[in-house]
Amino acid sequence: MDLSDIDPIKLIATLMVAATPLLLAAIGELVVEKAGVLNLGVEGMMITGAISGFAVAVETGSPWLGFLAAAAGGALLSVLFAILTQVALANHVASGLALTLFGLGLSALIGQSYGGQKPPPMAEVDLGPLNDLPVVGPILFGHDPILYLSLGLVAAVWAVLKYSRMGLVLRAVGENHDAAHALGYKVVRIRVLAILFGGACAGLGGAYISLIRVPQWTDGMTAGVGWIALALVVFASWKPWRVLAGAYLFGGVTVLQFNLQGVGIAIPVEYLSMSPYVITIIVLVLLSRDKSSAPGSLGRIFHASS
């Protein structure tokens, strides 16, 4: 065993890649929950995004089209959830669980002929001399564009929720849907849009696994990241920057435990594999002790009575 085999700079660069699927899914779910909807179908939407992105990228040869299709696929699956919960007024929890099961099955069906194939690679962003900077270069630059997109999304979600009228209305709908309705806001419309956004983000996160991180297709390859994303949103107290921190912590521990396995540390592999989940949740639980500020109407069915 030799810990000096682990290169910290490379470790940080890879942790960002490892964390991106989780980050994308979680930031989407954060918006959904801020609007008062609890969509437990994140895992299903991710895996659907993973296969639709993979299939389109392979067929067209364009990873960009693949990601576009992944977002569309995730959003399309979330339409089902939106119809169930916002129109048919079905229970959020049951609908979300059904969505996950449905997504896992559907993706396996579509993915039958894609096993063992290689998707077209996505070019890294070339920032010229910036890439050659010592330490900072490999960490901050030379990643793929989707990773930057995910960071941009976190900043955008934060800014929109905090500073814009649109964000304020969204939070109001999630906080007290009856009051928002009484003031004349379109509760159902706002929620459906939030659900679609969450679906698209989850789809992107899934495709990031199948197109960049792994990259290939296997059944059930999202491996519970969608569930971690759900937990992350709660323990991050619905705050975008905490979601980012939590996702990178999770990514960091994941990459570190792989490296530790690589150098043959004397801890059973099972413990190492579970460590990212355990550590992320413990840290976030400690962080969220101050004040858990769940949106007031989270998961409640809205019925516009006149």
Partner: peptide
């Protein structure tokens, strides 16, 4: 009252 508990006074009024 049609107010939002978790928001501040100004945000409630803006809504």
């Amino acid at each position: 009252f049609s107010l939002f508990d978790a928001l501040n006074v100004a945000e409630n009024i803006a809504l």
